[in-house]
Structures are given as C-alpha cells and as structure tokens.
C-alpha cells in the first residue's frame, strides 16, 4: 500500500492541472461554481503541484530502495514523470500559448499604414488630442492589447 502513494499523488496532480482546461472548454456554458473552482485551482495549482512533487519524489525514492522487483522500481518513473509534468503545466497559461499575446505593441503613422485597405475595420480611440487605431484583423488574433494614450492606461479587447 505504501508504494501506491506516489501514484495517488500523481493522479491528484494530474487532475488539478487538467481540470481548469477541461472545465473552460470553449463550446460549453460554465456555472458560477465551476468558475469558482477553476479560479481556486489556477490560483493555488503552482503551490499544490510543487508540494505534491516534493512529497512524491521523497516517497518514490523510499519505495525505490525498499522494492526488490526491478519492474516495480522502474514503474516509479511514471508517477514521478506525471508529477513533473503537472508541476510544469500549473505554471503555464495554456490560453496564452494558444493566443499569442502582444507585449510590445508597435505603431505607425496613418500614412505609413500601407498594410490596411480602406475596407479594413479598425477599433478607434481618442483621448485628449491623441488617437489610435487598432485594426480588427490584428486584435482579433491577439485578443488583448494593454496600452496607453495621453497617459491613460486601457486595454483593447476583441
């Protein structure tokens, strides 16, 4: 039974890491409870998975030295690998990987915007006497642009 603990820990880590992605599946409707659970998991997953990984490594090492059977020893690699993957996954924002962020938005003057035709839609914003245009064809790809205009911070979403 003692030797099963690393497997159980790895299962917990896998569930913690996979649940947010599974629950936020785009084509379904999420309940308030689900959103609450996913937010909790995303917030605490880095800590939870790190603790599970540390525990799992210690226990797997103990099992390794106590087990006689070679195959059973080798099989301990499986929970260790799953724990490692879960710890990594908890630190990666899948949605940032799927939709490239635009951390350093570059701008040109209107007369240089040769990549646009008159028929390209733009999201336009004016603050003070400054104006910026965000081509829909660009923001529909990045979805979020954090920016400022006349020293006012704002976020462009699409």
């Amino acid at each position: 039974m003692f030797h099963a603990i690393p497997y159980i820990l790895s299962l917990i880590a896998a569930i913690c890491a996979a649940l947010p992605v599974l629950l936020l599946e785009p084509s379904r409707t999420q309940s308030a409870g689900e959103i609450r659970l996913v937010h909790l998991l995303v917030t605490w997953n880095p800590a939870i998975t790190a603790i599970l990984l540390a525990l799992g490594l210690v226990l797997a090492a103990r099992s390794f030295f106590r087990l006689e059977n070679r195959a059973a020893r080798a099989a301990l690699l499986i929970p260790v690998a799953v724990l490692g993957l879960g710890t990594y996954a908890a630190r990666v924002n899948v949605f940032e990987k799927m939709f490239a962020p635009l951390p350093d938005p570059g701008f040109v003057a209107a007369h240089q915007a040769d990549f646009l035709s008159p028929h390209d839609l733009v999201l336009g914003v004016s603050l003070g006497d400054e104006s910026k245009a965000y081509p829909v064809g660009i923001v529909a790809y990045h979805h979020i642009v954090n920016d400022r205009l006349s020293d006012e911070p704002f976020v462009v979403t699409y």
Binding site: L102, P105, G106, F107, V108, A109, A110, Q112, A113, F115, L116, V122, G124, S126, E130, S131, K132, A133, Y134, P135, I138, V139, Y141, H142, V145
Partner: peptide
C-alpha cells in the same frame, strides 16, 4: 483623425 497612430502588430 488624420494624425492617428495605427497598431502595426
């Protein structure tokens, strides 16, 4: 807005 800046991506 003739003096607008345009996001080039």
């Amino acid at each position: 807005h003739p003096r607008t800046q345009v996001l080039a991506g």
